[in-house]
Simulated scan of single mutants.
Amino acid sequence: MEVVLQEARFVTKGVAVCSFLFLAASLLFDFFSLPLLWGAVLGGAYAVANFLLIGYSVQESLTKTPEKAKGYMSRQYYLRLALTALVLFLAIQVDFINPWGVIPALFYPKISIYARSVYQYATRDR
């Protein structure tokens, strides 16, 4: 459980940095709006929540037999997929949320984890 929370803290920081850079770029290119900000907030919050759900699902599956773990992980995957579809649907339907703020934020956890890996590789002792 502690590992999941530790990684979630890192991912939260990475999502915040990516969101800040995205919003700064939107200001620079005159694309910024309040709905875009709300979209970035919703997308970032959901991206972190989704990451936590993945971590908890993996930890819970480790307490099950291989057959039950496979079914459990499959159900959890489809639940997260449905939640992602719901978030995107809401972003499209609700006027005060810009979906172009939500969509990039879904990739921020992957970007932050990849950036950390590249950094660790570049700074390792040779």
Results as ranks from 00 to 15, higher is better:
Pro109Arg: 06
Leu83Tyr: 01
Ala45Met: 15
Tyr46Lys: 01
Phe96Ile: 15
Ile54Met: 08
Gln120Leu: 08
Leu79Arg: 10
Ser61Cys: 06
Gln93Ala: 12
Leu106Phe: 09
Ala47Gly: 00
Leu83Ile: 04
Val87Gly: 02
Gln76Leu: 09
Met73Gln: 09
Ala49His: 04
Ala91Ser: 06
Gln59Gly: 09
Tyr114Asn: 12
Pro109Thr: 10
Val94Ala: 05
Leu90Phe: 15
Ser74Val: 13
Ile54Cys: 06
Gly71Lys: 10
Thr84Pro: 05
Phe89Glu: 06
Pro109Ser: 11
Ala82Leu: 15
Gln93Lys: 14
Thr63Cys: 09
Phe96Lys: 08
Leu86Ile: 15
Gly101Asn: 02
Gly43Ile: 03
Thr123Asp: 02
Gln93Cys: 11
Ile113Pro: 03
Tyr108Gln: 04
Pro99Asp: 00
Phe96Gly: 07
Val48Asp: 01
Ala122Lys: 13
Arg124Ala: 08
Met73Thr: 08
Gln93Trp: 15
Gln59Tyr: 13
Tyr77Ile: 10
Pro104Leu: 00
Tyr114Phe: 14
Gly101Thr: 02
Ala45Pro: 05
Ala115Tyr: 09
Leu79Trp: 07
Arg124Thr: 08
Tyr108Leu: 06
Gly44Leu: 01
Ala49Asp: 02
Phe96Gln: 11
Lys70Ala: 05
Arg75Asp: 14
Gly71Trp: 10
Gln93Thr: 10
Pro99Ser: 03
Lys110Asn: 14
Ala115Val: 10
Thr123Arg: 05
Ala47Pro: 00
Tyr72Phe: 15
Leu53Ser: 12
Tyr77Lys: 11
Ala82Glu: 05
Ile113Glu: 11
Tyr114Met: 14
Leu83His: 00
Lys64Met: 15
Ser74Tyr: 14
Lys64Thr: 04
Gly55Asp: 03
Ser74Thr: 14
Leu106Met: 09
Ile111His: 05
Tyr77Trp: 15
Tyr72Met: 08
Tyr56Cys: 06
Tyr46Gln: 00
Leu53Trp: 07
Tyr77Val: 12
Ile111Pro: 03
Thr123Trp: 04
Trp100Ile: 12
Tyr46Val: 01
Leu83Arg: 01
Ala45Asp: 10
Met73Phe: 10
Ile92Asn: 13
Ile54Trp: 02
Leu79Ala: 10
Ala85Trp: 06
Gly44Ser: 05
Arg124Asn: 07
Phe107Leu: 13
Tyr56Ala: 06
Phe51Thr: 00
Val58Asn: 00
Val102Thr: 04
Tyr78Pro: 02
Gly55Pro: 03
Tyr77Pro: 06
Gln120Phe: 04
Met73Arg: 05
Leu53Asn: 07
Arg80Tyr: 07
Arg80Val: 03
Phe89Met: 13
